[in-house]
């Protein structure tokens, strides 16, 4: 089973991102489960959403405490909340930021990838300059970085799940797929994924 956690701020679309990602995996005949932080959301406050993926029916219904990979929709969350809490060593942490992966010196235990999803979303007219909607873009980068799901499945899921500006969302996702930066030479600890 693979468990993924998405960090965002209320209103950024973390929950929709989790649903799109779940739908993308479903298209590849996986069993999926996705859910938001159970509670009351406030705009701008840190939120999280979760996805489980497996080849067999998913029975576990508790929260996710030890995710395999993490997506961070808002770079300011890196300092605001412990985004790597429980992340398995060698797990991917994909961050929406203009910075290079190598600059995140505190995350050496993990595999870091960065993509300017805000810039890409703004360029494609998603949301506003001040509040770009980055959830579809970053999923393209996720497909590239983790190799867990095909870009085509992500794009298909976006087309089905996003109520408007489908083409712009698809293009943003493709651009993020192409432009994501990653460090691949991080030494992996024993027991972690290849």
């Amino acid at each position: 089973m693979i468990e993924i956690r998405i960090h965002g701020r209320g209103g950024q679309g973390a929950v929709i991102a989790s649903k799109i990602l779940a739908s993308a995996f479903f298209k590849e005949d996986k069993y999926v489960q996705s859910f938001p932080t159970f509670g009351v959301e406030r705009r701008g406050a840190p939120v999280a959403a979760f996805i489980r993926v497996d080849d067999q029916q998913i029975l576990v219904r508790s929260q996710i405490y030890k995710p395999d990979d993490i997506i961070v929709l808002d770079p300011t969350l890196i300092d605001a909340v412990d985004v790597t809490q429980g992340l398995k060593p060698g797990g991917w942490i994909l961050i929406n930021t203009t910075r290079e992966p190598i600059e995140f010196t505190g995350l050496q235990e993990f595999r870091v990838a960065t993509v300017d999803a805000s810039g890409i979303a703004a360029k494609h007219g998603l949301g506003s300059k001040a509040h770009p909607i980055v959830n579809t873009a970053i999923l393209g980068a996720f497909a590239r970085v983790t190799g867990l799901v095909k870009l085509e499945s992500i794009l298909e899921a976006i087309t089905e799940e996003v109520p408007f500006a489908r083409k712009a969302n698809v293009e943003a996702s493709k651009e993020a797929f192409r432009s994501v930066k990653l460090i691949t030479d991080v030494p992996l600890k024993s027991g972690s994924k290849p």
Partner: peptide, 11 residues
């Protein structure tokens, strides 16, 4: 169940 089913997506 609240949230565990109500707000959880599955097939």
């Amino acid at each position: 169940d609240a949230f565990i089913l109500s707000h959880t997506y599955e097939i």
